[in-house]
Amino acid sequence: MQEALQAHLIDLETELLRADARRLDALLDEAFEEIGASGRTFGKADVLARLPAEAAPRFLPEAFTARMLAEGLAQLCYRLTIIRPGEAPTHSLRSSLWRRRGVEWRMVFHQGTPTQPHTGSAIS
């Protein structure tokens, strides 16, 4: 994968962690599906209704890796620590699929898998 594309997808991914409803709508594909770290599944409408209303925790993404799966389809993986006031930090491995539509990239799938605290910089 080209470094410029990888950097662009990382920028989009980190933007989604803090996006308002209008930007979420622009970045999520109409066919978007998520399997959250809780095991629950969400569609685009669920995310648009839920995320902007939630109190924003502190997100600490790290150790991004990216690869092309097919023409116009990329996978981005990373570790995420979420810090919420008054709670213990939670840790997960994240995987997102980004699909190119024209010149725009939109997230079509996302999954979070709970993990123990991260101890290294690489995903293994």
Rank of each mutant, 00 (worst) to 15 (best):
V47E: 00
T113M: 07
Q6D: 10
L51Y: 12
D46N: 04
L28S: 00
P89C: 05
E30Q: 15
L16C: 15
R18T: 07
V103T: 09
E87P: 04
H8R: 15
L48H: 05
A7K: 15
K44G: 07
T115C: 12
L5Q: 04
F64W: 08
D29P: 12
I123T: 08
R40Q: 15
E62L: 08
Q111L: 03
V103G: 01
H91P: 04
A122W: 10
E34Q: 13
D25G: 07
F109E: 03
S38C: 11
I82L: 09
G43M: 10
I10V: 15
P89S: 03
R79C: 07
P117H: 12
A63C: 14
K44E: 11
M1I: 06
L51N: 05
P52T: 11
R18Y: 12
A66L: 05
W98E: 03
W98V: 04
W105C: 03
R94N: 04
A122Q: 13
G72N: 10
S124D: 11
L76D: 00
G36S: 04
L28Y: 00
D46F: 01
G102Q: 10
F59Q: 02
E33Y: 06
Y78M: 08
R23Q: 15
G112M: 00
G112N: 03
V47N: 01
A31N: 13
L73A: 14
R23Y: 08
E87C: 10
E3L: 13
E30L: 13
L93F: 14
R22N: 10
D25S: 09
F32M: 07
L48S: 06
L69Q: 11
V108S: 10
A63V: 09
F109W: 14
S38G: 12
G39T: 09
F64K: 02
E3Y: 09
P52F: 07
H118A: 07
L97S: 09
A66W: 00
L24C: 12
L12V: 07
P114C: 05
L69S: 08
H91V: 06
L17S: 03
E87V: 04
L27S: 06
P57L: 03
Q111F: 02
I123W: 02
R84V: 09
R40W: 13
L48N: 02
E15L: 08
Q75H: 08
A74H: 00
A49W: 13
A55P: 08
G102S: 03
G43C: 11
A55N: 11
F64G: 01
W98A: 02
R50L: 14
G36I: 01
T81S: 11
M1K: 12
L93M: 13
Q6N: 12
V47K: 00
A74F: 06
S38L: 09
L9H: 06
E54L: 15
L97Y: 01
Q6P: 04
A4L: 11
H8P: 08
G112I: 01
A70V: 05
F59H: 14
A74Y: 00
T14H: 05
A45G: 10
